[in-house]
């Protein structure tokens, strides 16, 4: 009998601080599996953002840098320009990337920075206790939209993958989900493909991963997966928004 599934070596053995059932943990594993399968752990330099995944530098078993809130794409730019031969990735939440860090992500993409961005969209600020995010859905109740998000008051949720797919330098843009095993398998393929895009030098790659937040959605882990499927996917359609093949 052979060991066919275990923790990838690109994850440290530190237990994560994430809430029970939070799918950050799954996404971390998928990124680490991609790094392992591509054999680039010793060439990888990751950039942790600020949010629930601020402690990612304790979980990814490779060189890491901690960025200020919203600035991971800029930090990653600095790293990649110094070490163009290394595999540079950022791991960011929706508050970090689509709110305070919007300029940094759009311009990193516009410059075609050869980095890979793992963008975890759970429609809420988790670390700080459940505030509205740029990706919070219409009508979604949060601690700062207690009556439900009202577009005439604070606008509509931002579709980052569609937005970035209009940016020339973003050669690989995909949105995936981890709410069930088939989608987890697809998500891993997309993440691996994003890293391969970087390795091929084709340009900027980003994978938007729809993710849950049981604690701040006020749901059990299982209910959260269902809520994601029934509410987030209709507004954030899954799929490849730009692929390197199109670009060639």
């Amino acid at each position: 009998m052979k060991l066919v599934f275990e923790r990838p070596s690109a994850l440290t053995d530190k237990q994560t601080h994430y809430c029970p059932g939070c799918t950050h943990g799954i996404i971390h594993r998928l990124v680490a599996e991609a790094i392992d399968e591509l054999g680039v752990r010793e060439k990888a330099i990751g950039v942790a953002s600020v949010g629930c995944s601020v402690l990612a530098y304790e979980y990814f078993n490779c060189d890491m840098q901690q960025a200020a809130h919203g600035r991971a794409p800029a930090v990653a730019t600095g790293i990649k320009r110094v070490h163009p031969d290394k595999v540079v990735f950022t791991y960011q939440g929706d508050g970090d990337l689509a709110s305070i860090g919007m300029a940094e992500i759009v311009h990193a993409a516009a410059r075609g920075e050869k980095i890979t961005v793992i963008f975890v969209n759970n429609t809420i600020y988790g670390m700080t206790g459940g505030q509205m995010a740029p990706t919070s859905l219409v009508g979604q109740k949060t601690t700062t939209s207690p009556y439900g998000r009202q577009p005439d008051h604070c606008g509509y949720p931002i579709r980052m993958s569609e937005l970035l797919s209009t940016v020339q330098g973003a050669v690989s843009v995909a949105r995936v989900s981890v709410h069930d095993v088939p989608n987890i398998i697809k998500a891993k393929k997309a993440i691996k493909k994003a890293f391969e895009t970087q390795l091929s030098g084709a340009g900027f790659s980003i994978v938007e991963v729809l993710s849950t937040c049981p604690t701040n959605w006020g749901k059990t882990p299982l209910e959260a997966l269902k809520w994601l499927e029934e509410n987030m996917i209709p507004y954030y359609p899954l799929g490849e928004y730009r692929t390197p093949e199109e670009v060639k």
Partner: peptide
């Protein structure tokens, strides 16, 4: 049956699978 569905779904790498 060693399908590893559980291990893939687990957010905390709790599960090893042998087949």
């Amino acid at each position: 049956i060693g399908c590893a569905m559980c291990a893939r779904m687990c957010p905390d790498t709790v599960i090893k699978v042998y087949k």
